[in-house]
Design a protein around this nucleic acid. Structure first.
Lengths: 326, 326
DNA sequence: TTGAAAGCGCTACCAG
DNA sequence: CTGGTAGCGCTTTCAA
């Protein structure tokens, strides 16, 4: 049960001042080569590890980046987290992941924890604000907003997806295939993403010269179950010949329903949202809206590591695009 | 640009000693109620957050748990990480995730980083040791081994999956369905999991009164591509009527190949490994080997939070089981 | 009930 | 080139 190895213990061991050890280990020039070598070797032998706590106390920037996402099983978040973690690794940053489940209180608590450990930045998918809050509170942390834009927040940057074009293209694509009764499954307009995607769907319908039928425009809180249920309804009770999905979970749920009813392709054409591995080989490949996940993650780390290269509050927007398959 | 709020700044603000503030905030009894209230209120107002760095310096246990896994896109790891994160959250623990890509050097570096921040425990899927290492080094951290067992390591505990029974059951299940030419795709015997699963497959074959054909026993480093390629080979160049998958990635690759050749079920019966959401609705549901992911994660946190409740080095084994569908 | 001092590991700043 | 001092935020120990 040996005590922690510190620069002092090394100094003692070597019979020199802890300052010399500090300089030797941090590459300061003013150390005799022989001394430096001895120190470095001894540190190695003893298994010395620099204390992040001590550095943090001195006000040095920490290596910790927080990531606040609803969950990590969703394919998009998993892939984002994966690339973010890899890229962080390359920059010597460490990623603390907190799952918010889209719950504001969970986000608040997680932010507190991250402040305690002096995270240098937090990458956050802002949760919907509860109605009781008049205004968004400041996190007290340098924040990069991901995907969503919280009104009233003051983020260091926002990394967003622009899927309007892709959604419009999807409608036009279906129209070219002869579809006229094109349904849309999306989040309610109370969510900013829900609003924007719905608008894009409608714009596409207009461009195609079609009239969006309210019966085929189904808006509910997004989930796999929601996509499943509403797609069953489309198949059983409407004359929809195609469905466009306005979200990741919705897409998986809709796919499940269409596959289980053996309606996919034949009874109901499908355009998904997101691109999990298996979309590429289901029924010869599914047409879907592809979000540039890796680019989002890489840019996010860019923003974190080079805050000066862009003005504070900058919005980085990445275009999703329609991937036609099958 | 206000300075960090500390107990000292609060004390100054209130014209009292920082010790009183410390006591008030940490619930020490020896503080006058009125003083305590004033302190708590002021701390709230100023947005005081306790410094984890200062605590760590004093030797208090940190709230940080490390997680070392190959990646986080694999369904099993994603689900494990998800439940682990949720459960940690509930215990006030924070999860730092490092991706090792199954590379020893990456694991070593990540471990170093975690030591720097004084992680209290690291949950690790040990990477294969490079041949050059005569013996496994000690991490200097309290380690919980996940899934794999590194020889020569001295973990605080191991959380393992026992899939021998499930694999045997899978063979017997296929045999009952009339299959005699049952192929197996797995990792090479150099990996401990590869060795064990292969043995279980062979035990199943023996129990079924079948003779494992070397031509149908394909062992290669596991990946989606490997599963894909070898399944194509099975379909095109052998008389295998069923395939049993001995790994998560292998299973996804094999499924991809079988689906693309429209061989699934008809030409080739399939038993997968792992249970991603979509396995339940592909072709009416796939039969697969189900690993109790959530239980693993929950037990892992148990082990972390109550190290005394089990002897050091304890092995916690969870049985996978065959899920028959379709 | 309150306060002062010391020390956790580290480095910027001065003295030698 | 080397060594001492001080201070980052906090709590334990002792003194008032």
């Amino acid at each position: 049960m040996s005590r922690r190895v510190t620069i002092k213990s090394i100094a003692e061991d070597l019979g020199i001042s802890h300052m010399t050890v500090s300089r030797a280990l941090s590459g300061h020039p003013n150390v005799q080569q022989s001394t430096r070598d001895a120190v470095v070797r001894r540190a190695e032998e003893l298994g010395y590890v620099r204390s992040a706590a001590a550095s943090a106390m001195r006000g040095d920037p920490s290596s910790i980046v927080g990531l606040l996402i609803p969950n990590i099983t969703n394919d998009f978040y998993a892939r984002f987290a994966n690339t973010l973690a890899e890229t962080c690794e390359a920059h010597g940053l460490q990623l603390i992941i907190h799952l918010t489940k889209d719950d504001y209180e969970a986000e608040r608590l997680a932010t507190l924890r991250l402040r305690e450990v002096q995270a240098r930045t937090v990458v956050s998918v802002p949760t919907p604000l509860p109605g009781t809050l008049p205004t968004a509170p400041e996190s007290g942390l340098d924040t990069v907003q991901l995907i969503r834009d919280r009104p009233g927040a003051d983020p260091a940057a926002s990394v967003l997806v622009d899927d309007a074009r892709a959604l419009r293209d999807a409608v036009l694509h279906l129209h070219r295939q002869g579809h006229r009764r094109i349904a849309y499954l999306g989040a309610p307009e109370t969510l900013s993403s829900g609003r924007q995607r719905l608008a894009a769907y409608r714009a596409g319908m207009r461009d195609a010269g079609l009239d969006p039928d309210p019966v085929l425009t189904l808006l509910e809180p997004p989930s796999i179950a929601m996509g499943d249920r509403l797609t069953c309804r489309l198949i059983d009770h409407t004359d929809a010949s195609a469905v466009l999905c306005g979200g990741f979970e919705i897409s998986n749920g809709a796919l499940k329903a269409a596959m289980q009813r053996e309606a996919l392709g034949s009874r109901l054409a499908f355009v998904g949202y997101g691109d999990p591995e298996f979309y590429s080989w289901i029924r010869g490949g599914l047409t879907t809206i592809e979000v540039p996940v890796d680019e989002l993650a890489i840019r996010t780390v860019d923003v974190i590591t080079q805050p000066e290269s862009a003005p504070r509050g900058q919005r980085h927007s990445f275009a999703a695009k329609l991937k036609v398959r099958g």
